[in-house]
Design a protein around this nucleic acid. Structure first.
Lengths: 183, 183
DNA sequence: TGGGGTATCATGGGCGGCCATGGGCCTCAA
DNA sequence: TTGAGGCCCATGGCCGCCCATGATACCCCA
């Protein structure tokens, strides 16, 4: 892909939201910051979001490795595990980014997500989502309403304080979080 | 087989689902990504899925080596081990891929899986499944319904967080805890 | 602080190679 | 001899690779 430069030292997290177009061949440019978050990998996995929200969810090999490790913690023949393997592994498209950072969405993916012309890429920490812009707008509105609720804020504050306390109390003695550079 | 080039090197996992045809001679093309996941091996083992779901399950030599190692952990004469050896080892067809990446399914396999004309190859992480397309559609629907249940999502999230916590530092090398105080 | 230059990025389009599939020929066994 | 399986070549469609272009954001320098 075109050089990513050294913008935003590599911290492999999917942040922010970007819009891009689906061309006549069904190709979509992965936003450059997301390509950086993929850590140079060119293999993209995409599946229909489990919760039925109507978006696509996806990531690179690192994410799939995480899911693989996760699923092996569930009882092998349990309905839960089978459902997740079927949905995430069997259900995902295994796409390869081209040299300019694009992937070709399958008709199936376009259909289930109701995509048409333009898409929104939304960062989701370890993964990202692909939305139809209208659906995304509705989703965003609903989310910000929930976020503003006192319970939400309280839950955030509590969890945040837990983390803070753990660091302070020496659960991780003398350690602090920093951003790593490229090298 | 036709050169796979260097596409999708690394990471031998069976992901995604592909459809292909059974030709007049009973041959089926193994999807190219699955051939890559087989790591260049041309020997395919296939048996009727243990859970009675009506599909075939299979993989390459790596998978059988795993099963071999697994079964030797069970008491030699235990009914469990005998049943598994009988189903997986005695019950498998040992097929060889031809130069173009096809295998010939036995009549037995076609019959137990109810195959007819076209088949679906579904990735299953370390193994893959072969389905009649209609059965597969029904299975997929059932699985995505289960996957969308709050309990399932909760179980996934919990297991994921466990893995995250365990690998917190290892998997995100750019986000590291370092020694050192304020200075 | 403003303007020009440059690097990066999103997008369009052409082309070759890969892949799924069809089919022929040879060998071997019944 | 016939049918089945193994091996090979042929082919058409599609995917991935590549080049090109315009737009934009960023940087540097005046």
């Amino acid at each position: 892909m075109r050089g990513l430069g050294k913008r935003r030292t590599g911290w492999r997290v999917f942040v922010s939201t970007y819009e891009s177009a689906i061309d006549a061949k069904g190709r979509v440019s992965i936003p450059a910051p997301f390509r950086a978050a993929l850590g140079g990998g060119t293999r993209i996995f995409l599946w229909s979001a489990l919760d039925g929200s109507g978006c696509l969810e996806g990531g690179g090999e690192a994410l799939m490795a995480m899911y693989r490790a996760t699923l092996t913690r569930l009882p092998p023949q349990s309905p839960v595990r089978k459902a997740l393997v079927s949905t995430i592994f069997a259900g995902s498209a295994d796409l390869k980014m081209d040299e300019t950072g694009r992937i070709k969405l399958t008709d199936e993916l376009i259909k289930v997500a109701g995509l048409n012309g333009r898409v929104k890429f939304a960062g989701n920490i370890d993964s990202f989502q692909i939305w139809d812009p209208d659906k995304h707008a509705a989703f965003t509105t609903a989310m910000s309403e929930t976020a503003a609720k006192p319970e939400t804020l309280a839950a955030l504050g509590e969890a945040y304080n837990d983390v803070l306390r753990q660091h302070e109390l020496g659960h991780y003695p003398d350690l602090k979080l920093v951003e790593g550079g490229e090298g």
